[in-house]
């Protein structure tokens, strides 16, 4: 089986178990979104899938091979991760940043092939950053900056892309713009996308496969319309909510109860 899998995966932070004995598959060429309450371990799980965190026990498989058995550079050609809130060094330009994505494909005597040049340009075009390529990353808006980092991960040319809360710090317009972009990337270029999102409604809209992490396990996994229910939201987020179909997309829409102004 292709894609990412875990077998009896246990992750600890210090002595504190975060994920315990997890068996879990991520389908290829789909958008998978991890959701869960704060501190549920969804980011930790994502980081371990990208070998940024070593499992305490258990295994992770990529294309049926154990992650530990493949050289880290080989993994870098199969899987890229955009960590949460990356910081660019002072003064680096968009082009220089995106170029770094070619690192796993280069050698010390082969640093700027035709292919590198074309793929970097392709990544800049896809993220609509070509006109801004000589700008400094610090000088960009939040949305543009996030796109520059995504362009770097695109230049890495990996079939699997992991993103840790890519919409953090972005306003609503830029959140939608970014998720639309990732959606196109999946639908047009068949990239497998795995990301952590906070907003359950956006997750329902974009995810082919929604994964809810709760109590150190995958509580439930499936298409959002199958799994998102009032009971599920209560269990995972401990929140009373009403689930309706989104009037525009038909995907589940979670309306939290609680207090607020009432006009009806």
């Amino acid at each position: 089986m292709n894609g990412l899998q875990t077998k009896k995966l246990t992750l600890k932070y210090g002595d504190q178990p975060i994920i315990e004995n997890l068996d879990f598959d991520i389908p290829i060429e789909k958008i998978t979104v991890l959701v869960g309450a704060n501190g549920s371990g969804k980011s930790t799980l994502l980081r371990s899938l990208a070998r940024l965190l070593n499992p305490t026990s258990g295994e992770i498989f990529i294309d049926t091979q154990k992650l530990q058995d493949i050289s880290t550079k080989q993994i870098a050609k199969k899987l890229a991760i955009l960590p949460q809130g990356p910081v660019a060094p002072e003064g680096i330009t968009v082009h220089q940043l995106v170029k770094q994505g070619r690192y796993p494909h280069q050698k010390w005597f082969q640093q700027w092939s035709k292919e590198d040049e074309e793929l970097v340009e392709k990544a800049l075009i896809a993220t609509q950053l070509l006109p801004l390529k000589d700008r400094q990353v610090d000088a960009l808006s939040g949305g543009q900056r996030q796109r520059a980092w995504i362009a770097m991960t695109l230049a890495q040319e990996t079939p699997i892309i992991l993103l840790d809360e890519p919409t953090t710090y972005l306003d609503m317009t830029h959140q939608i713009e970014l998720l639309d972009f990732l959606f196109d990337l999946n639908r047009e270029y068949k990239r497998t996308i795995v990301m952590v999102l906070h907003d359950l409604n956006l997750a329902c809209r974009y995810a082919d496969n929604l994964v809810a992490i709760h109590d150190k396990k995958v509580a439930v996994q499936g298409t959002p319309e199958e799994i998102v229910t009032t009971e599920m939201v209560k269990e995972i987020f401990n929140l009373d909510a009403l689930i309706k179909a989104d009037p525009y997309f038909g995907t589940p829409l979670c309306i939290p109860k609680g207090k607020g102004r009432r006009v009806k």
């Binding site: 070998r51 080989q74 770094q100 010390w108």
Partner: peptide, 24 residues
Amino acid sequence: LIILGRSMNVTELGDDVAISMGIK
């Protein structure tokens, strides 16, 4: 330095990015 030097540019983007790019 000549052989490994280029990896330093990647490492300057942060530890997570460096590992993601396949740097030990």
